[in-house]
Write a protein that binds this DNA or RNA. Structure first.
Lengths: 369, 369
DNA sequence: GTGCTTGGTGAATCAGTAT
DNA sequence: CATACTGATTCACCAAGCA
């Protein structure tokens, strides 16, 4: 994690509960700037409230088949605009949003995200390992859905647990295409009649990756289209707080039952590989102050082509430059920048050792206290 | 192929040539309803800010061409609206279009396609097998681009060579995600200075699949952003007629030279066998995400002497080491390396089972498609 | 010729903190 | 607010040079 938290949150926030109602109205009733992350899986089909109006103020009847394609896009866009604006208002300045959709609606959502000033960070492809085949052989098997990850604004210092995702991928940077199975088997919730409780239940593995990547423990995660509560279940398991909004009583009931069964993982399991940026900063001068290197001692560049001398104030002096370990390293390599900690080496027992080793010693002493 | 052709085409069509000029004006000068397929790779409007350097300090040669600069989304949308309208006019009633883009522009293109009455048939993900990494560790590796395939209208009897694609895919239905390498090596065209002739040259393999899937021999394929002429080269190879439009003289020259060298393939050569799929890599993190092992669960070494705990990001924590299943295994055994998949075991029904069993389950699910 | 090492590169919206 | 400084950060593949 790279981001400091204030720990403050609006007192009125209904954490870890499922709210009943239309998500736009409910979100508008929540305090501004109070949510860390929103995950939204909006309906693709136009099951809209009857109170939407065309630009000419004529009322739209969402169950009326009489309207044309253009009208239906207009209504869907109006719906998208409204819920995204409501979502944006309740996000913290450094908050972020995920939306998921298929080609029916994702282009309209992506464009509207950009129109409202969200800053797209990645589009992510969920590549389904067991999709429904195309039975008629008239198109390609529709084997993926698209997620969009966006910051509230271009300036947002969004959360991204780079090292944790790298670990998930066995040490290689996580890519924008994720191969995960669809939700089947025991994970797929059934209603009392034995049918699937929700038509588009998302797999927990998908939410696991999303929440591990872009939230920290204790963050507030809101899902305006809660459905059977996959977002809440994974949030609870991972020690995040959730808020669900769902207007269908049947889905709320299934989700509540599901969430009651979920247990939070213990803290050690939740701990995640940390970025080096989270380590405390150690100025090179401390290495000299502590006598780990003496003023006048010579350092060699990693490639052995350059050398420089340590000075009492923690600066270096090279062939024709003076300055910090980074500045002199950059000058030697004629590079725009240089990490002096890994660039410069000193001799111990005939071996060349990076000065970063000394920093690690200081840090481990700091931790011990 | 599923569709009958009349064989008629407008007499004035400048087949198999590269037209000079702005694509909107040139398309408007062509006869209405005369083109079978359009493939369009328009500017992406990347909105890049400063320079980007690799960790080794080399500078990334980014797309900084004038043709990719737009003042605002409004200007870009107006451009998109205009060229798509011009493209739609010249398409035959049963014609279709492909567009390609990244998250910077593809949502706006997709929405405008729908607004104009194009009928989206699939969105297709080009998963790059060798993308550029994310050098700052601030986002996911941007490892794909998105194509949209759309008919001129909902009524269009579009061409789709289902069986051809099925055999390209070793007998199973072609999916909407295509794994193909980016254009490198000898295929990448150079200018006289030895630099890449065009910053965004597409691989021929991509166009091969597009044209094989959605055109028949003798069809007319138009590319309004011709660049170095990949669309033309593959069209000529496959016995389709092409029309290219390009306003940069330098690109036209490179494309003309390239096309002069291309020969139409004979039918036997067309049946190129595709490279076999390698056994897919399965990161241990997927086992955790999928809930096959719970974070916090304990693993035992094969000899029973060591144990370690699973963490939420797919790393392990042992007595005094953290890291991947392989790293922790190696540390326990004080060995230089270790295959964690066969080294670590978990308990099921009182028995110790190697975690490799879980990997095999995932692989068999993946193969099932 | 073969195999190994070294170097280069690809549509990229790529930093955070202290002064 | 801008400016300066610290220092974190890469994967797959291809080509060329060399043993």
């Amino acid at each position: 994690m790279t981001k400091k938290k204030t720990g403050k949150s609006a007192p009125a926030l209904p954490l870890n509960s499922i709210l009943d109602g239309d998500c736009i109205e409910v979100m508008n009733s929540l305090p501004e700037g109070s949510v860390d992350l929103i995950f939204a899986d909006p309906p693709y089909n136009l099951q809209l409230r009857g109170d939407l109006h065309r630009p000419d103020n004529s009322k739209v009847d969402a169950v009326d088949n009489d309207w044309d394609q253009f009208d239906s896009f207009r209504v869907y866009d109006e719906f998208t605009r409204a819920w995204l604006a409501a979502a944006r208002r309740i996000l913290k300045p450094d908050g972020a949003i995920w939306v998921i959709g298929s080609y029916h609606n994702v282009f309209r959502m992506g464009a509207e995200l950009q129109n409202q000033g969200f800053w797209i960070l990645n589009d992510v492809v969920w590549r389904k390992s067991n999709p429904m085949p195309n039975f008629r052989g008239k198109r390609l098997t529709n084997a993926h859905e698209t997620l969009i990850w966006a910051g509230k604004s271009e300036k947002s210092k969004y959360t991204f647990n780079y090292e944790a995702l790298k670990s998930l991928n066995e040490g290689t940077q996580m890519r924008s295409d994720w191969v995960l199975p669809i939700c089947t088997g025991h994970e797929r919730l059934k209603n009392d009649a034995g049918d699937k409780a929700h038509p588009t239940q998302k797999p927990e593995s998908l939410l696991h990756r999303v929440l591990l990547a872009t939230t920290n423990p204790g963050d507030v995660v809101l899902d305006p289209f809660f459905g059977t509560g996959t977002t809440g279940a994974v949030a609870k398991m991972l020690g995040r707080d959730y808020i669900g909004i769902e207007r269908e009583a049947e889905y709320r009931a299934v989700a509540a039952k599901r969430l009651a069964r979920v247990r939070k993982l213990d803290n050690e399991a939740l701990e995640v590989t940390q970025s080096k940026r989270a380590e405390p900063r150690v100025p090179f001068g401390q290495v000299v102050e502590r006598g780990m290197l003496r003023p006048g001692e010579e350092l060699w560049s990693i490639n052995g082509r350059h050398k420089a001398k340590v000075r009492a104030d923690g600066s270096l002096i090279g062939a024709d430059v003076k300055g910090s370990i980074h500045q002199v390293g950059a000058a030697c390599e004629k590079a725009p920048s240089c990490n002096g900690w890994t660039y410069w080496h000193f001799r111990r027992d005939g071996k060349k050792v990076p000065i970063d080793l000394l920093r690690q010693q200081i840090r481990s002493e700091m931790r011990a206290n």
